[in-house]
């Protein structure tokens, strides 16, 4: 018992150390690393976590998260650059718009399940992409350049430290917020809908409403990532939300692990590191990315975080001197939604 407690404290301690190290990146690392790897993996992690939340807790594997990301990012960029809005107000407007679009997408897609859900959200991704690629208001293919983040956050290229810390805070808030939701009545019921919609209807739940609200709840998270991406890169265009990017976000989330929220950032960090440093080594970066993706899906449905988790519990088991593995954690890791299940 005391051993278990110590181990729990140990895990918490390890997490705290990780967080401190991550927070010290701007101090310890180069400006290039902070901005190229740090900023990118943080905003990519935030958009990926909106997908991890939907698929892990709601059984909805969505390709439309980049679309919502784009709605918020492009609207915020357009309002601040062309209409001279205050960046914070523009960001808020963009995120609200993304939430409204999320509600609409959720309402339309909530009747579909599994693979059909994947495909209807792919249609949303394409509609949004073609819309922004065609409409001159949003710079068409050129996009909107010269986006200026709020002055307090500093210059993301020359001096990315404050921007980095801001993204880190938003990441932590998104993580805590979504984790909190997953433990509330609403979040548990969402997991119930993931496991068996027919059962949930028989228990008195409005299954579609739950799906719609779950989808809507993830939208501002994806939207925030879009705004942060526009700020970090000082630009955004339709190309930032193409189908290839939608698939990239899916890849990131899968590599990190769809079972746990933190997987999103782990996957994003792995991707960004490879993207930054592997490209110099090999011309066939995408091939290797595909291979990693394939291997993860085949051998570890829980992604890298799942692998780390099993390694961790093996170690605990060892350290605890062969005592039975600890009882189920208070929030169980939901199984990967590998099948549309339910309404067969």
């Amino acid at each position: 018992m005391t051993m278990d407690r110590m181990l729990t404290l140990g895990t918490r301690g390890a997490l705290a150390v990780v967080l401190v190290v991550v927070a010290l990146v701007p101090v310890l690392c180069t400006t290039f690393f902070t901005s190229q790897v740090g900023l990118t993996s943080l905003w990519l992690g935030i958009v990926a976590v909106s997908l991890t939340f939907l698929s892990g807790y709601g059984g909805m594997v969505s390709l439309a998260q980049t679309a919502l990301f784009g709605v918020a990012g492009l609207i915020a960029a357009r309002l601040s650059v062309e209409s001279g809005w205050d960046p914070w107000a523009a960001a808020l407007a963009g995120i609200l718009a993304a939430t409204a679009v999320g509600l609409l997408f959720g309402a339309v897609a909530s009747g579909s399940q599994g693979i059909y859900f994947l495909i209807i959200t792919l249609a949303f991704a394409q509609v949004t992409y073609f819309y922004f690629a065609a409409v001159p208001t949003f710079g068409a293919h050129e996009g909107i350049n010269g986006v200026r983040p709020p002055a307090v956050l500093g210059d993301p290229v020359q001096d990315p430290a404050r921007m980095y810390w801001f993204l880190l805070v938003v990441s932590v808030l998104a993580f805590l917020g979504l984790r909190h939701v997953s433990r509330t009545a609403f979040g548990l019921a969402l997991q119930g809908v993931r496991d068996d919609p027919v059962r949930m209807a028989a228990l008195g739940y409005n299954v579609r409403l739950h799906r719609i609200l779950g989808f809507t709840l993830a939208a501002p998270v994806a939207g925030a990532a879009g705004v942060l991406s526009a700020w970090s890169n000082t630009r955004m265009s339709a190309g930032s939300i193409s189908l290839a990017i939608a698939i990239l976000v899916l890849t990131t989330a899968v590599i990190g692990g769809l079972n746990r929220l933190e997987g999103a950032w782990v996957g994003a960090l792995i991707y960004t590191l490879c993207d930054t440093y592997l490209r110099g080594w090999t011309d066939r970066f995408t091939t290797w990315l595909g291979v990693v993706f394939l291997v993860i899906v085949l051998v570890s449905p829980g992604g890298v975080v799942g692998l780390l988790g099993s390694a961790g519990s093996w170690l605990r088991h060892r350290l605890a001197g062969g005592a039975p593995p600890p009882a189920a954690p208070s929030t169980p890791a939901p199984p990967v939604p590998v099948s549309s299940g339910g309404a067969r």
Binding site: G192, R194, D196, L203, P332
Partner: peptide
């Protein structure tokens, strides 16, 4: 037809607040 990814207690809890 159980909510296989949730604990027994959460299954019953959801059934309680369902009505």
């Amino acid at each position: 037809r159980l909510l296989t990814g949730l604990t027994v207690e959460d299954n019953l809890y959801l059934a309680a607040i369902g009505v």
